[in-house]
Amino acid sequence: MPPPKSNRRTSPRRTRIHGGWVTVVGEASGRECKVLNVSAGGAKLIMEIAPRIGTKFYLSASPNAARRKQCVVIWRRSSTVGIKFLSEFRSVN
């Protein structure tokens, strides 16, 4: 039997309700999202396009942000997604 969810996390999550920006890999335009909580390894987001996005995308603070993180969707529930960070923040060329 797997350990309870709270015990499987490798780093604590902090509540951070603020805006974010999702850019789907392979697409030029992005969409707004809301970051509900974040840890060193991932985050929980709310976004209207959650059911339509693929599994990989970039997360940034704004559409024109100079830095972003590549992410993968771990779970989905309606418009809420749990994501894992695949990279550190990188500069956008």
Rank of each mutant, 00 (worst) to 15 (best):
T55V: 14
G82C: 08
K56W: 05
R68W: 12
R13G: 13
S62G: 04
R52F: 11
A43R: 09
W21M: 07
K34C: 06
P2V: 03
I17N: 05
N37L: 01
I17P: 01
E48T: 15
V25H: 03
S91Y: 03
A28C: 12
L45N: 06
M47L: 15
S39C: 12
S91F: 01
G30F: 01
T55A: 08
K69V: 00
Q70K: 13
N93E: 06
K44T: 07
A28S: 14
I49Q: 08
S62Q: 10
N64F: 04
N64Y: 13
V24R: 06
N64T: 15
R90L: 06
S78Y: 02
G20V: 02
S6C: 10
G54S: 06
E48K: 15
M47S: 12
I49S: 12
W21H: 15
G54R: 10
S6I: 13
C71N: 13
L86N: 05
G19E: 14
T80I: 07
E88P: 04
I17Q: 04
A65R: 09
F57L: 10
E48C: 12
T80Y: 05
P3W: 03
L86W: 08
P3T: 05
S62F: 03
A43K: 12
E48G: 13
R8T: 15
I53N: 02
I74K: 14
N7K: 15
K44W: 00
L45M: 14
R52H: 09
F89M: 12
E88M: 13
T55Y: 10
R90T: 01
E27R: 15
K5L: 15
I17R: 15
A40T: 11
R67P: 00
S60A: 14
K34A: 04
R77E: 09
R8D: 07
E27Q: 15
I17D: 02
P51K: 10
A40V: 11
K34P: 04
P2Q: 09
I53L: 15
G82V: 02
R90Q: 09
I49M: 05
P51G: 02
A28M: 14
I49F: 12
T55E: 14
L59V: 09
L59P: 10
T55F: 10
P63G: 04
R31H: 14
T80M: 03
G19Y: 13
R8H: 02
I49G: 08
R8W: 08
V73R: 07
R13V: 03
S87Y: 04
V72M: 06
R9N: 10
A28D: 12
G26S: 03
I53A: 04
K44Y: 10
E88K: 13
E48A: 13
V22C: 07
P4R: 12
R16H: 10
S62T: 13
T55G: 05
G82W: 04
